[in-house]
């Protein structure tokens, strides 16, 4: 059985809150995936969920380092003695490196640890073959879409991760995402995510085919001119696409040579700590990669030689 314990940290980035999962692995042992933010009541709820099912928390696994997913691992480990597992490249404190593409065995249950870079470099997805279920962290959510933002996020690795799920986990039927509701049509959701990124990139290429543009111009063109609090997320999203296209030689970036206007600066470099509480600012900053200050304004143009190709 899989128990969803939702953390009390709702926000635009975390939707209704972070999803922590308690998995009954047999022999009275449980695995917790993504203990969540460091909120004492949430850790208590996880412990209580294990207690009522007469389970011992035998292991803790973290899908990625972000502050809405990982920090409760340390107190939960302290209270249960369970080891913390994470991606070998993860910067979060952990006791054991996950063996990627191998099974993590707890109790009677094996979960495949899948290397899933893109949202962050240290992202893993777990596949529970017993339930034909994927635990996708922030690679796929129950609703809405995921922010892929540099420097931690990278678009092509993310797209390859999605494609791998479609190619190699075609038997998966359930997705337990890091936020939002449980998805019962896994394959349709994976296909929707793949199509969404492709559509966005085609929009960007179409806009650049008209004329060379800056990221703020692309945001207004693609997402509309209405002032929207999510514009910085859109800007970073477009940056991730542009960086991928630049690497492939399909788009070139040239400095505009002028200073940013206040509006452009706010869109590219949002001052989040001035708007929200510190805990929430840490989460938004991690999601947007907005610790990366974009110092210069670039104009992006299609490279003539390859402009005709679409992915």
């Amino acid at each position: 059985m899989v128990t969803l314990v939702r953390a009390p940290n709702p926000s635009p980035m975390t939707l209704s809150g972070t999803n922590s999962y308690l998995i009954d692995c047999g022999y009275g042992q449980a695995l917790v995936i993504d203990p969540g933010p460091p909120i004492a009541s949430h850790v208590d709820t996880l412990l209580e969920a294990a207690r009522v099912q007469s389970l011992t928390i035998a292991a803790i696994a973290v899908t990625h380092w972000h502050p809405d997913h990982a920090p409760a691992a340390a107190p939960l480990a302290g209270m249960t003695g369970a080891p913390i597992y994470a991606h070998p490249a993860s910067s979060i404190p952990h006791d054991r490196d996950l063996e990627l593409e191998r099974d993590l065995c707890i109790g009677q249950t094996a979960l495949r640890a899948i290397d899933a870079p893109g949202h962050t470099f240290d992202h893993v997805i777990f596949y529970l073959a017993r339930d034909r279920a994927l635990f996708t962290g922030d690679v796929i959510l129950g609703e809405g879409s995921v922010v892929i933002a540099p420097p931690g996020g990278a678009m092509r690795p993310y797209q390859r991760t999605l494609q791998r799920l479609a190619d190699e986990f075609g038997e998966a039927s359930v997705i337990y995402g890091g936020h939002g509701p449980i998805v019962t049509d896994a394959q349709a959701k994976i296909a929707e995510y793949i199509a969404h990124r492709r559509m966005r990139e085609e929009q960007i290429l179409a806009a650049l085919a008209d004329q060379a543009q800056t990221i703020p111009e692309l945001v207004l063109r693609i997402y509309g001119k209405t002032l929207n609090p999510l514009q910085p997320a859109m800007a970073r999203q477009i940056l991730a696409h542009l960086i991928a296209l630049e690497g492939e030689g399909r788009v070139a970036a040239e400095p505009t040579g002028r200073a940013m206007s206040a509006g452009e600066d706010t869109m590219l470099n949002p001052r989040i700590e001035e708007i929200v509480a510190p805990e929430e600012a840490a989460i938004i900053t991690a999601e947007l990669g907005s610790q990366l200050r974009i110092g210069a304004l670039y104009r992006y143009r299609l490279n003539a030689a390859v402009s005709g190709e679409l992915p």
Binding site: P151, A154, I243, G247, G249, A253, L292, Y298
Partner: peptide, 26 residues
């Protein structure tokens, strides 16, 4: 200095490459 993981991209010519926007970000 904060430490941000960097995975350079590979260009069509097979060269490693870090985009200008991320030059200072690792």
């Amino acid at each position: 200095k904060p430490i941000y993981t960097i995975e350079p991209a590979t260009t069509m010519e097979g060269d490693f490459w870090i985009p200008a926007e991320l030059e200072g970000a690792w």
